[in-house]
Every structure is written in C-alpha cells, then in structure tokens.
C-alpha cells in the first residue's frame, strides 16, 4: 500500500511538472496591460499547488507506519488487467474494422470466454447490441459510428434508412 501510495504521488508530481512546462507557453505572471493574470497562470500555479501537495503525500508516506494491506491482490489484478487490455484492443480495433465488428467481438470475448456464459446468452447479446446501437445512433440520432473497412457493407442499409 505504501509503495503504491508513493508511486502514485510521484506520478502526480511528474504530471504536475509536465503541466507546468506546457502552461509556460502562455504568460504565467501578472499582465499589467489587461489587469489580471495571463493565460498560462491558472494552469501553472494550480499545477504547482498540485506538485507541492503530492510532495506532501510522498513525504508523509516516509513518516507513516507501513500498513500491511496490499494494494493489489494478484488474482484480482489479473482479472482487471485482462479487462483493461480487452478494452484497449477493442478501441484500437474500432477505426480499423469498425464498431460493428469490434464491439460484438468484445462482447463475445467478455461474455463467453471471460465470463463463461452460455452460447444462448452470448449469442443474443452479441447480435442484439449492435442492432440496437445501429438503430439508436445511426438511424435515430444520425450519429455515424466508425466502420473502417466494413463501410461498403453498410451502403445497402444506408439506402434503406436515409
């Protein structure tokens, strides 16, 4: 728990420093002309407070008695990482093969392989979800989801609904 606390504090400090560096692109000081702080002041000084507070959290972790609680449980961590990876792969696939291939693939993986559900439930959800999404977003809201290489397959559907 202590190690994780420190790693997160250090990460926040690094992030703050990174924000501060970017904020200096605009004036961070008092602008005499308009009477008020420059465009970079708000992010810069707030990041500085963030940096100092995270430094405080880090410093505190050294005087604190270590708790025996673990930040990660190895079994649960594996499950969480699996889900995160599957989400990342799905998002990466969307612009390539399209939402209507990537999302059912994700559902199939999650329900059948990860969740261990039966074929019937998996099948119903894997088919029904994209159909719902198509009618909800594309037909009703006119929001086109990315289709990637599968775009030509949708031309007849477009002709039918638009």
């Amino acid at each position: 728990m202590l190690v994780a606390d420190r790693v997160i504090a250090i990460a926040i400090m690094a992030l703050s420093a990174y924000f501060m560096w970017h904020a200096t692109a605009l004036p961070i000081g008092w602008n005499g002309m308009t009477g008020g702080p420059g465009g970079g002041a708000f992010p810069f000084w707030l990041s500085l407070i963030m940096l100092l507070s995270a430094g405080g959290v880090l410093a505190r972790s050294f005087v604190q008695a270590p708790s025996s609680q673990h930040f990660f449980d190895s079994v649960m961590l594996r499950k969480v990482i699996l889900v995160v990876v599957s989400i990342v792969v799905t998002i990466a696939l969307i612009p390539v093969v399209g939402a209507y291939v990537a999302l059912p693939l994700f559902l199939f993986w999650y329900l059948r392989i990860y969740g261990g559900h039966g074929w019937v439930l998996t099948g119903i959800l894997t088919v029904a979800t994209p159909v719902f999404l198509f009618f909800f977003f594309e037909v009703t809201l006119k929001i086109l989801l990315p289709k990637g290489v599968t775009e030509p397959l949708f031309f007849p559907l477009y002709a039918m609904f638009f």
């Binding site: 999302l103 994700f106 559902l107 969740g115 959800l125 999404l133």
Partner: peptide, 16 residues
Amino acid sequence: TVLCALVIVLCIVGGF
C-alpha cells in the same frame, strides 16, 4: 459480467 460488458460497450459508444 453481463452488466459489465454492456456498460463498457455503452461507455465506448457513448463517449464517441
């Protein structure tokens, strides 16, 4: 797991 899967799909599409 059923709820999770559907929520994740909704998050991705809803975010887009």
